[in-house]
Design a protein around this nucleic acid. Structure first.
Lengths: 232, 232
DNA sequence: TTTGATTATTGACAAAGATCAACCAAATAC
DNA sequence: GTATTTGGTTGATCTTTGTCAATAATCAAA
């Protein structure tokens, strides 16, 4: 694998503490690949051959059942995905596709499991990482079950605003139909939900969102760290 | 802690491989307590002082937001809960209450984290356990987002049937209103949903469910291992 | 620039789900 | 044994959401 990627991958919490020797052994077996947009990287149900790390671009995790499809998460650099399946040697539960041109590092799951067995620091980092993943999904379940779609959208907007730096104007990072799917609604209803937020000072034009009255929106959305904070 | 519980706790995958010394150190600091029904063991947002292990009875994990409440999972012996919060030293994301008289082992989270730092086998077991937890929540998210409530109920019934041994008659293990909350619907709609499954041969009387036509129900429910199997 | 494809929006309608009120049955308390 | 409480069911109604069809807007390719 191209050595130029070593440092940025190494900075990931998952790899930062492990022995040099083990990290290099992982990297030796790894591939780096550039993918065009809309490529299905992973199909749910398949055996988990690789741990994926996104280095550039963006990837959508999604799932299907009975001809229906739903977006589960959007992954951005630099982070791993499909860690749990890799380490358990279990089939992928979600599919993944590139949203843009993306650069992905692929580490054979077998290597991950071998190094995991030998490197206690790596195993420990994995625990932190998996606990984080678990808590993220729990938060998103709470969001789904406890909030109406209007409330979900309001909180989604507030989270995106924070990611974008906190200003009153910012761009939605993904297409609206994907936002709709993430929030568990149809694109039509997302359109209507955006209108439903106008009384709280939210205006949308294309991908640009403007929050005219932050306090009104917060008052309606009632964001909660136990649902909306990425860190806690 | 009473030594009589050692063996059954030790058999948990999480503890089965760790060094005797470390296991005993965990057990020395642990409490065992019997709780009556309807006791709130954990409140979301609180610091995670203890790793909980249920030894007898049953516990419901639930979450609240803005005066709404939803059931997240039902925990039965013998298993741990609130592992991720414990190990991350992060606030609980879910609350927990006993549903019946229950016996709970409480291990101070600080001890768990200490032993985790020293015992690589324990750390590795934790990885497997957390990966399992993560995958369970992902499955339940897929269930929620991809299925109508009727389909969810049909699959819930099939899963319960499997747990109960697979016979055509079995008992629902929890109150219907809790089933409703787990499935993200109101008790009223659960009642109607049960009726909606009669054409597929499902009959309910109190807690007793009878499946007259297994194949019809399966044909409608379309169970999928990537959503409904606990193991994969 | 024009064309074609994709995405977003809107309105009309249908389906699903929530709410409210009434009622019933079983369990518990007195 | 009766009264009360709790959980469950049912019907009526209303809200939310999904679906379908039409249209507009955007973007990319020819």
């Amino acid at each position: 694998m191209s050595e130029t990627l070593y440092p940025e991958v190494r900075t990931l919490h998952l790899f930062s503490k492990m022995a040099d020797e083990h990290f290099e052994s992982l990297m030796r077996g790894a591939y780096v690949q550039n993918f065009p947009p809309q490529i299905e990287l992973i199909t749910e149900g398949d055996p988990s051959d690789f741990l994926h790390i996104i280095v550039a671009g963006s990837v959508e995790l999604f799932s299907t059942w009975n001809r229906r499809e739903t977006a589960m998460a959007t992954i951005r650099p630099i982070s791993t995905f499909i860690l749990a399946a890799s380490i358990k040697d279990a089939p992928y539960l979600m599919s993944a596709r590139t949203l843009e041109k993306s650069r992905i590092v692929l580490i054979p799951s077998q290597d991950v499991r071998s190094v995991f067995d030998e490197d206690a620091d790596f195993a420990r980092a994995m625990v932190t990482e998996l606990a984080q993943c678990y808590r993220s999904v729990v938060k998103s379940t709470k969001d789904l079950k406890l909030r109406t779609s209007l409330e979900q959208l309001a909180n989604y907007i507030l989270r995106q605003q924070t990611c974008a730096g906190g200003g009153a104007k910012f761009e939605l990072p993904i297409e609206k139909r994907r936002v709709a799917s993430l929030l568990g609604m149809t694109p039509e209803n997302l359109s209507r939900a955006f209108k439903g937020l106008q009384p709280y000072g939210v205006y949308v034009n294309g991908n640009q969102v403007t929050i005219k009255n932050q306090n009104d929106l917060i008052g309606f959305a009632k964001p909660n760290p136990l649902i909306d904070d990425f860190n806690t």
